[in-house]
Write a protein that binds this DNA or RNA. Structure first.
Lengths: 217, 217
DNA sequence: ATATATTTTTAGACAAGTCTAAAAATATAT
DNA sequence: ATATATTTTTAGACTTGTCTAAAAATATAT
């Protein structure tokens, strides 16, 4: 049985690994979790002791097989609860994160299986993130050009294909940056412009812009 | 903001007060919560400090107005979640307690209001207990124990006072459930066993069983 | 390559909640 | 009414998860 805190660490390490696909640094975890590096070191050592994390002093951490399984299970719960909140209780998809953070720690296999069935075994949560299967399978995220994405799908901005001053200036002005979570909310078929949700705001961008943005989805 | 532990204490003190309608003893709380009397003393003093409990050394504790409000809010959450689990996720009414014990600590006013609406503002939970209103009102039940009923009188089974596995199993086997209409058709005076009419059938139950069944008449 | 800066770990402290063992207060029984 | 039993509280310890401050390791810059 994991404590809530242990679960949160596993979940965040998982998220960071997905982004970087290499060992995650103590500082990175500390920042993500709003805590101090020394606290992270303490917890990492405990998780390492328990065989959930592979850790070598000063070299960062990564999840073990066992740790990854646990992390995925938590992500599954989080995303199913988010889906419930939006699909059944009429929350908006950007209002549900904090509540799901609490619900994800409720421990009952049966509960989560029933919830999954009740929701009709959804594949994606309201943010467009894939919901892991009960056996731990997760749809692999891959880089996709924004122009290849469908409505309601989302991803994290990981690459900008054009490095002209003007283009970068454009991104700056609109406060678009690497690492931002972007969700496609509308596509205008006649000119392929799209409406995207980014940093709590809606933005309309042309196909020309979209062509240069790559998301990890 | 109350900790989970504080919430649990308030909830259990509330339950004990409802039963006894007087100050509850440290030992009674300890037994109910599966903890030691010394731990209870510690917590009681803390809750008293916070103005949630009225406490005088060696004289037992009772909830303050503020503490009672908090306790009722937790009971409301607990019972709404139980209703959700049974009505929407098809749990049996005797399977939901442990899960609801976890869910009741999820903190979000909006969540619980939406859940309430989603369930159609139910008045009773699957065990027949009244669900407190958002403002804290709780329907006072004029429940009667089956042993206090006369021949030919009837009511709806609303509460089961014993939650041991064996007892619940007994009820399941005989297909006796909360919400059933029960009529007393015969009382055997020498052992106080009774014949009851339930779901189109006649059943004989011992006084021992009858003691644990409460009807809303 | 050496000094400087940054990151990470350690050491020691603290708060919450629990426990055991012993002391203090209250209740019970003769 | 006094001795005995029970209940409750206190004192001190332990665990979990956090923190600050200082030390150690690693990275960076000139």
């Amino acid at each position: 049985m994991l404590s809530q805190s242990e679960e949160n660490y596993l979940k965040e390490i998982y998220a960071l690994e997905e982004l970087a696909s290499k060992e995650v640094s103590t500082n990175a975890i500390a920042e993500k979790m709003n805590t101090k590096a020394s606290s992270v070191t303490d917890m990492i050592q405990k998780l390492s002791q328990k065989g959930l994390v592979v850790y070598k002093k000063y070299q960062g951490s990564k999840l073990s097989k066992k740790g990854r399984e646990q992390a995925v299970a938590i992500v599954r719960k989080h995303r199913l609860w988010e889906t419930f909140l939006v699909n059944k209780l009429d929350f908006l998809w950007d209002e549900v994160h904090e509540i799901a953070e609490q619900l994800e720690h409720v421990s009952s296999e049966t509960l989560i299986d029933r919830l999954d069935a009740y929701l009709g075994h959804p594949e994606f949560d309201p943010h467009g993130d894939p919901i892991p299967k009960p056996n731990g399978d997760v749809v692999k995220m891959q880089n996709k050009c924004l122009t290849d994405m469908d409505v309601n799908h989302s991803g994290v901005l990981v690459e900008v294909k054009n490095s002209e001053k003007a283009f970068l200036k454009y991104l700056n002005k609109r406060n678009i940056a690497i690492g931002d979570h972007i969700k496609v909310t509308e596509i205008e078929s006649f000119d392929n412009s799209m409406k995207i949700h980014i940093k709590e705001k809606e933005l309309v961008i042309s196909e020309e812009i979209a062509k240069n943005l790559y998301l990890n989805t």
